[in-house]
Structures are given as C-alpha cells and as structure tokens.
C-alpha cells in the first residue's frame, strides 16, 4: 500500500451515447475519462463526467492536469472521480 497524491493527467476519453452500462441509463450521454496517476506511468484510473455543457471541451487534451475529488454517491459510499485541476481551483 502506498499513498498517492491524487494528481493525474488526462490520457483519453470517450463520450458514451448508447446505454451500455447498468445504472447509467439516465446519465447517458456521459464521458468516461482515462487518467494516468503522476506517481507511475501506465497506472490508469477511470472516471465519469456528465456529457453536458459542464464539460469544457477545450480542456479535453492529452496531458491536461487532473485532480482526484470524492463524489458522494449515497449513504457513506464515496467514489473517487478525477476532475480538471484548473476547474477545481476556480
């Protein structure tokens, strides 16, 4: 076990239009983001992001700095999500 900073960079993304994943029907279309943790090359993490106007399209570039935040899903269940580091600072 090793602690990591939560810093990452954007590697890839896809905007999902078809209802492929259970539980995401009402969220479609949504983005899946693939990020690489700064601690290790090839250590990937996935995130999801609403596929609406809240996604700053100009930020969808390889290498964009990302930062881990925790999304409260329900009860005490929290899911790590990666968001644009720049957006978070605003």
């Amino acid at each position: 076990m090793r602690q990591v900073s939560g810093d990452a960079q954007l590697v890839s993304w896809t905007l999902v239009f078809q209802k492929l994943t259970k539980g995401f029907e009402s969220a479609t279309p949504y983005y899946i983001l693939l990020v690489e943790l700064v601690e290790q090359a090839g250590l990937f993490f996935v995130s999801d992001h609403p596929g609406d106007d809240s996604m700053p399209l100009h930020l969808l570039k390889q290498g964009t700095p990302m930062r881990c935040v925790y999304e409260q899903v329900d009860g005490d269940f929290r899911l790590p999500q990666f968001r644009f580091a720049e957006e978070r600072q605003r």
Binding site: W13, T14, I32, Q62
Partner: peptide, 21 residues
Amino acid sequence: KFSEPWGCSTGIQWHALAFRR
C-alpha cells in the same frame, strides 16, 4: 470493480478510449 462504477463496462468503451488516445 476498477471500471464499472464509472460507467465503463464493455469492450467498445475500452476500444473507444484506446482509439481516442
């Protein structure tokens, strides 16, 4: 468990991520 909670569960989504990259 490392991908489905974020809506990523099928082959085409992984192919899409790889091809976008």
